[in-house]
């Protein structure tokens, strides 16, 4: 930093706005990749939400079953699988795009800029997967209950719970975003540290 002043060179810049815009473009134009990266988290989140909705409904009709407590360890397993899956697919993603990362570096990005761009992409993947996963989870949870209990009474109870279900979807989305971003930190940090010459060789 002191050297910076000595030479009087300004830092290169990548504003949050621009990075967000680029991240969103990358997401929109790589839907297939996004789905692959997101599929683990979609499954994980829908699994978790299914468990919550299902146990809530079963507990309502059959309070002695105590299903909620019995299934809580499954939630933890679900979460861990999510994070491992996303970390794995982010490592692949970053490996595939190392040439692109090298190119960014030749244009003047700092490692922190690369991190910014990729974490924003992860954030978008997390949000989209979270919404999708939560909705799927709610539907499956209700569906499973319908297999065991009467349609009218189930739906009547679901109707009284719309607010809770809404909160579940929001919660699932937030959780998903946090998990995807967390799972991406290691791969993205690694990518940002690449020597540009090395990164470029992988094109």
């Amino acid at each position: 930093m002191t050297k910076l002043n000595r030479l009087g060179l300004p830092k290169t810049q990548y504003s949050t706005n621009t990075a967000l815009r680029h991240a969103w473009k990358n997401i929109r134009q790589r839907k297939g990749r996004v789905l692959i990266n997101g599929v683990g988290i979609i499954l994980g989140i829908s699994f978790i939400i299914t468990l919550i909705v299902y146990s809530m409904l079963v507990d309502h009709f059959d309070p002695i079953s105590n299903i909620a407590r019995e299934q809580s360890y499954l939630l933890v397993v679900g979460l861990i699988l999510c994070v491992v899956g996303v970390t794995n697919s982010m490592f692949m993603e970053v490996g595939q795009r190392s040439g692109e990362i090298g190119t960014y570096m030749t244009l003047g990005t700092l490692p922190s800029h690369v991190i910014k761009l990729f974490l924003f992409e992860s954030l978008f993947i997390g949000i989209l997967s979270g919404i999708l996963g939560s909705i799927i989870g709610v539907l499956i949870g209700i569906g499973l209950t319908l297999l065991e209990f009467n349609y009218e009474s189930t739906m009547a109870f679901v109707d009284t719970q719309t607010e809770f279900i809404g909160l579940l979807i929001i919660g699932g989305t937030v959780l998903s975003s946090i998990l995807v971003v967390l799972a991406s930190i290691l791969p993205v940090y690694g990518a940002s540290r690449l020597n540009p010459a090395e990164a470029l060789r992988k094109i």
């Binding site: 910076l4 060179l9 290169t12 570096m105 030749t106």
Partner: peptide
């Protein structure tokens, strides 16, 4: 002699690849 910031500046402003 350049640090990471200065190097980024150099790549950005002084060199076209």
């Amino acid at each position: 002699k350049l640090d990471a910031y200065e190097l980024a500046w150099l790549r950005c402003r002084k060199i076209g690849y």
